[in-house]
């Protein structure tokens, strides 16, 4: 399963919380520059996968590797390798947009002048150059989420994680941000893991989509290039099929 250019590998991972199995015999890999979307309903163990990946959890069985390193045991060595944007922006309210973007670089020890310059560049890429001096309370929801994305990208991580990052936004803003994310990820050749429950979103921003059951195990895998384009009639059929699989998986888990 491991490939030389793989940034992330999960090998036969099991994760149990007491009597509850959250992840079951899961193996996957994400190659360099690849964007993988993980699609699943609430409780499918998507967040557990992210927690395993950022080293908050040690798998009960199996191995997780990021750039060949164990995120749990080699926590410090992975500093600066992973950048994550969450469902909500999670900004520091007392810091301006500029200082919020710079916070990751500050922790990584980037000199002040360099980190402020890079933060300004990233705010510019997110179309927020004029809002650098504003506090989060003065920004709209979409702008705050852009700051959060800029914060994740600005440390120039090898791996970007998105945890339902667009789900709290209205559809128009979410679509706009998705497009900007794809542009940036393409330009920077970023490897990304996108966790979502939104079928259209998964297919719109990734190269490959994994459908997870409950507990987390792979039900189906889709190469986006082989699938109908989002918005077409054929995609509607695919969407209905995926939706039905998600419903069936939830019913089976609750039975």
């Amino acid at each position: 399963m491991n490939q030389p250019n793989a940034v992330v590998t999960f090998t036969d991972v099991n994760q149990r919380f007491g009597a509850v199995t959250a992840v079951e015999e899961l193996s996957l890999r994400i190659g360099q520059g690849e964007r993988l979307a993980i699609l699943g309903r609430t409780g499918a163990g998507k967040s557990t996968l992210l927690n395993l990946l950022i080293g908050n959890l040690r798998p009960t069985r199996g191995t997780v590797r990021v750039d060949g390193l164990d995120p749990y045991a080699q926590h410090a060595e992975l500093q600066g390798v992973i950048g994550m944007a969450f469902q909500t922006p999670r900004l520091l309210p007392w810091r301006t947009a500029l200082d919020n973007v710079a916070v990751g670089m500050e922790i990584l020890g980037v000199p002040q002048s360099e980190r402020l310059e890079r933060a300004r560049t990233w705010l510019g890429k997110m179309h927020l150059a004029d809002s650098a001096g504003l506090f989060p309370s003065q920004l709209s929801g979409g702008m705050r989420q852009r700051v959060s994305l800029a914060r994740a990208f600005s440390i120039e991580p090898a791996l970007v994680l998105l945890d339902e990052s667009f789900s709290a936004l209205d559809e128009v803003t979410a679509r706009q941000l998705r497009e900007e994310f794809v542009e940036l990820a393409e330009a920077e050749r970023k490897t990304a893991l996108i966790v979502t429950h939104n079928i259209e979103e998964a297919f719109a921003i990734s190269h490959r989509v994994l459908l997870l059951g409950r507990p987390a195990r792979i039900l189906a895998e889709y190469a986006v290039s082989d699938c109908p384009a989002v918005g077409t009639t054929d995609f509607g059929d695919l969407r209905r099929s995926i939706h039905q699989q998600m419903v069936d998986a939830t019913r089976a888990a609750m039975a």
Binding site: L78, G80, I107
Partner: peptide, 11 residues
């Protein structure tokens, strides 16, 4: 949530 967002940088 904010703590988690900061801890992603391993401070």
């Amino acid at each position: 949530d904010v703590l988690e967002a900061i801890e992603q940088f391993r401070p």
